[in-house]
């Protein structure tokens, strides 16, 4: 077994953890509150996207999956916008809605008009970067509002926000330099993909833990 095959096997940690998360989420779905149901939907989107990445990159005749990155970024931004706008930030302000709308339009314009998505040598995923930066902004906005006393301190949301903040900060950095990472030799960039995989798996595990905990608490309260 060579190094590449080893990393291929280790990379299956991501869909396995996602599958566990979806099962935990579906078992508790009726008991979960709305924000955690959104997280279950997010895990489902991640799982489907992971399978598509593998199929398009390994099994299909295209052998190319990078164009999925901004599409996935768009879906991530939609999910986290709903989560933060309606539940975590409890902020129904027009300026935030305008910000979200603008970011989504920018990502859509990249998907619709940019042709560089299908050339690996010139590939840049500004859509994913915009989505990640927007999610990081939501996290910082949450901290700001808590410090100002505009929203009450909720320990579950604080942990969720911390996990999202760390993961998407790392993700933002990685996808800023994605052109280098996909074109350079693997032995130079393996460290980044390992960090990406570890942060992704840890992030999913924290989400699964929060879903399980919320389901358990609401079962006890009934």
């Amino acid at each position: 077994m060579n190094q590449g095959q080893l990393w291929d096997i280790i990379s299956f940690a991501s869909p396995v953890v996602l599958l566990v998360g979806i099962i935990v989420g579906l078992l508790n779905f009726s008991r979960l509150n709305a924000s955690y149901r959104i997280i279950v939907v997010y895990l489902t989107i991640c799982f489907v996207t992971d399978l598509l990445y593998r199929y398009l990159g390994i099994y299909s005749h295209l052998k190319y999956n990078l164009f999925l990155i901004p599409i996935f970024g768009f879906l991530e931004l939609v999910v986290f916008s709903i989560l933060y706008y309606r539940h975590i930030l409890q902020n129904k302000s027009n300026s935030l809605m305008l910000f979200i709308g603008t970011m989504l339009l920018l990502i859509l314009s990249e998907i619709a008009f940019a042709t560089k998505l299908f050339h690996r040598e010139t590939f840049h995923s500004y859509g994913k970067v915009i989505a990640d930066a927007s999610v990081v902004f939501f996290c910082l906005l949450y901290y700001w509002k808590v410090f100002k006393g505009q929203i009450p301190i909720n320990s579950e949301y604080t942990l969720l926000n911390a996990a999202i903040f760390v993961y998407y900060s790392v993700n933002l950095f990685i996808f800023l330099s994605v052109n280098f990472l996909v074109n350079a030799k693997l032995n130079f960039v393996v460290f980044f993909w390992v960090v990406n995989l570890i942060s992704m798996v840890l992030f999913y595990l924290i989400l699964i833990y929060l879903i399980w905990q919320n389901g358990r608490i609401r079962r006890i309260m009934r």
């Binding site: 760390v166 900060s169 950095f173 280098f180 960039v189 460290f191 980044f192």
Partner: peptide, 28 residues
């Protein structure tokens, strides 16, 4: 040079991880 570029990027990534983790811990 790709190797030097990768090393530089790794260092910056580690700094970013450290800073973000520190922010989260201090905030907590």
């Amino acid at each position: 040079d790709p190797e030097n570029y990768a090393i530089g990027l790794s260092v910056v990534l580690l700094i970013v991880i450290f800073l973000v983790t520190s922010i989260v811990v201090l905030t907590r």
